[in-house]
């Protein structure tokens, strides 16, 4: 379970790619964790556990979508599998700290940027709604979000490259 918890962000993110709602993605991760706990067999390797977790999260996400109407078109399953494989490879080849680095980077963001991310991903508003709330053009919102995501990605990489201590 500790191993699964260490990959919480990745598994939740994989679920988010399917459902596009952060709270539902978190619900799905909880379900995956509960299933892992109640599973009678042990996973021999971290890779096997992670692979099982990604598949289970994806299936839960697709089930969740099926229960609803007018949901966004999701990526082809083979593509989702490819993304999950890359996540798993990255997780196995990388020491912890990525999750904390992302949190630290978010802390360092200006309030305005964090507000934009919050509206889009915590409040779950579509970009159109965010643009309306902020009195901005839709294109401007996409550009700001894109820059923010790139900046956060770079910030994480920088933090992970820094020597500990």
């Amino acid at each position: 379970m500790k191993r699964l918890m260490s990959q919480r962000d990745r598994v939740s993110a994989a679920a988010w790619l399917v459902v596009r709602d952060a709270h539902t993605a978190e619900d799905i991760f909880q379900n995956v964790a509960l299933k892992a706990m109640s599973k009678p067999i042990c996973f021999e390797t971290d890779g096997a556990l992670l692979s099982w977790a990604f598949i289970t999260a994806r299936r839960e996400g697709i089930d969740w979508l099926r229960r609803r109407k007018n949901e966004p078109v999701i990526l082809d399953e083979t593509l989702l599998e490819q993304l999950e494989r890359e996540w798993a490879d990255e997780a196995l080849g990388q020491a912890g700290g990525r999750s904390q680095a992302l949190r630290d980077c978010l802390e360092d963001l200006p309030a305005k940027s964090r507000d934009l991310l919050k509206r889009r991903y915590f409040d779950g508003h579509a970009c159109e709604a965010v643009a309306e709330q902020l009195g901005a053009r839709l294109d401007a919102i996409y550009k700001r979000l894109s820059r923010l995501h790139q900046a956060l990605k770079k910030c994480i990489e920088t933090k992970l490259e820094q020597p500990a201590g």
Partner: peptide, 9 residues
């Protein structure tokens, strides 16, 4: 995707 779920968290 990772950033979205961590922002929410």
């Amino acid at each position: 995707a990772e950033q979205a779920v961590v922002v929410a968290d």
